[in-house]
C-alpha cells in the first residue's frame, strides 16, 4: 500500500457516526481505507528510469516529500495531484496502474528546479519526473503531451541553425496544436517585436557560423538517444507510436 496523502486515496470511507461492534468510533476514528492487495507490481518502470541519464538518481529517494512540499505546481498552482514524491514512489514500487491515473498530470512540471535544489538526497527530482513521464508516453500509457511536442519543436528549431528562431518556433508549435495564428493584441505585439528588431525570423533568422558541420553530428546524437530509450523498454511492452 503506497503512502499517500489522504486526499489521493481511492476507496476512502468516511462516516459521521460510525459504530463498530456496538462501539461508537466516530470522531478521530471515522476514516477507513478499503482493504486492497496488489500482486501485479512490475519493476520495469524503475529499471528503465534508472537506466536513463536523466533518471539515474531515482534510487536515492527516501520519500521525505521535501520536493512536493515546495513544488510550485503542487503548492502555488494548487494542483494537488501533482505530487513528485508519489510519482517516484509509484515508480519504485512498480505500481504502474496507479501511476497511469496521473498520465495527464506528470507532464505539467514547469522545471523550476526547486525540488532539485532542496532534495537532501541529491535526487534530480525534476529530471526523474520527466523520465517517468517519458516512460508513460513511450509505453502508450500517456498521450504525447503539449510539453513533449514543444520540447521536440524547440529542439528541431534550435538544431537547424544553432540559434533559436522564436517566431518560427511559435508558428510551428501553434500550427501543430491546431491553433490559429494570433490576432488583435497578440498580433500587434508580434509586429512590434519585429519592427523593433527583436525577432529574427525567415530570411533574417540568425545562424551560428560553422553550424553546418556540427548539426549532423548533433542530429545523429539525438536520433540515437531517442532510439535507445525505446530499445530499453521492457520487451513485453512493445513500443507504441512512430519511430
Amino acid at each position: 500500500m503506497p503512502i499517500v496523502e489522504k486526499s489521493l486515496v481511492e476507496g476512502l470511507e468516511r462516516s459521521e457516526s460510525l459504530q463498530v461492534e456496538g462501539i461508537d468510533v466516530s470522531g478521530d476514528w471515522n476514516t477507513f481505507i478499503a482493504s486492497r492487495v496488489h500482486t501485479d507490481l512490475d519493476l520495469s518502470i524503475v529499471d528503465w528510469v534508472r537506466g536513463q541519464p536523466q533518471g539515474a538518481t531515482i534510487d536515492r529517494c527516501w520519500q521525505c516529500g521535501t520536493c512536493t512540499a515546495g513544488c510550485c505546481m503542487h503548492t502555488d498552482y494548487g494542483l494537488e495531484e501533482f505530487n513528485p514524491r508519489y510519482f517516484i514512489y509509484l515508480a519504485q514500487l512498480g505500481y504502474d496502474k496507479e501511476l497511469a491515473r496521473y498520465a495527464q498530470t506528470v507532464w505539467r512540471c514547469v522545471s523550476c528546479n526547486k525540488c532539485v535544489e532542496r532534495c537532501p538526497k541529491g535526487v534530480k527530482v525534476e529530471e526523474v519526473v520527466h523520465s517517468i513521464g517519458t516512460y508513460l508516453e513511450l509505453t502508450g500509457t500517456a498521450p504525447k503531451s503539449p510539453a513533449d511536442r514543444f520540447d521536440e519543436a524547440y529542439t528541431r528549431n534550435l538544431l537547424a541553425r544553432g540559434i533559436l528562431d522564436e517566431a518560427g518556433l511559435f508558428q510551428t508549435f501553434e500550427a501543430g496544436e491546431g491553433r490559429t495564428l494570433p490576432t488583435g493584441e497578440k498580433l500587434r505585439m508580434g509586429l512590434r517585436l519585429l519592427l523593433t528588431g527583436r525577432l529574427h525570423t525567415g530570411p533574417l533568422a540568425k545562424r551560428t557560423r560553422g553550424w553546418g558541420r556540427l548539426r549532423p553530428v548533433l542530429e545523429r546524437m539525438l536520433s540515437e538517444d531517442l532510439a535507445r530509450r525505446r530499445q530499453d523498454l521492457p520487451a513485453r511492452l512493445p513500443p507504441k507510436g512512430g519511430p
Binding site: 536523466q54 522545471s111 520527466h130 517519458t134 529542439t155 534550435l158 551560428t208 548533433l218 538517444d225 531517442l226
Partner: peptide, 25 residues
C-alpha cells in the same frame, strides 16, 4: 562570438547528451 543556443530546459527531455553538448560548445 558564434555562440549557439544553450538548449534551456527543453532539449534535456529528449537527449541528455545533446543537452550537454550544446552548452559545452
Amino acid at each position: 562570438e558564434e555562440y549557439n543556443c544553450c538548449g534551456a530546459t527543453e532539449v534535456k527531455n529528449l537527449s541528455h547528451d545533446v543537452s550537454v553538448a550544446l552548452p559545452s560548445r
